[in-house]
């Protein structure tokens, strides 16, 4: 089957690394991250912007990678879950989730941690923690230990 659309060159900075890739302009940023860049930490839960499993930081703001055509990410600076820990050390938020048992099956976890990290860095961005995390569905924890984790991270900030 001919690919009807021309591939385009898109430049991305992901977790501090620069990439230049040739890609179908409508390929979802999520698929580019997972397939082209092999960063499979960002998960797909629904593909329709409801569950938040694919939450990343896009030019510093939380956004959903399943809804962004890669062409719109040209020149963007992106952080994924893989970009939070460094030198084998967990980030403040990751460490809090570890201590407080904020993860169970783990599929919502990367998106949840991206939202939590943004909220901890920008406490004024939401009225409260629940609202800050409302875009990230979790089916295992009932959210309570996630709340505990975020509170713990705030304490250790």
């Amino acid at each position: 089957m001919k690919e009807p659309v021309k591939e385009q060159t898109v430049e991305l900075t992901v977790n501090g690394d620069n990439y230049e890739i040739n890609v179908h302009p409508l390929k979802r940023l999520l698929d580019v991250l997972r397939e082209d860049l092999k960063l499979t930490g960002t998960k797909e839960g629904c593909g329709e912007g409801e569950c938040g499993a694919c939450t990343i930081h896009f030019d510093g703001e939380p956004a959903l990678a399943c809804m962004i055509p890669v062409c719109q990410a040209d020149g963007a600076e992106i952080t994924t879950i893989e970009g939070l820990s460094s030198d084998g050390r967990l980030s403040l938020v990751q460490e809090a989730f570890h201590q407080e048992g904020g993860t169970q099956c783990g599929i919502c976890t990367p998106g949840m941690i991206m939202s939590a990290t943004y909220y901890i860095d920008n406490p004024d961005s939401a009225e409260n923690m629940r609202e800050a995390l409302a875009g990230n569905q979790c089916r295992c924890t009932g959210y309570k230990r996630i709340f505990d984790s975020v509170e713990e991270a705030f304490k250790n900030k």
Binding site: T40, T80, E82, S85, L90, Q94, H98, G101, T109, I113
Partner: peptide, 8 residues
């Protein structure tokens, strides 16, 4: 948990 928290 550790691998789940880091996306690995």
């Amino acid at each position: 948990t550790t691998e789940k928290l880091t996306g690995k």
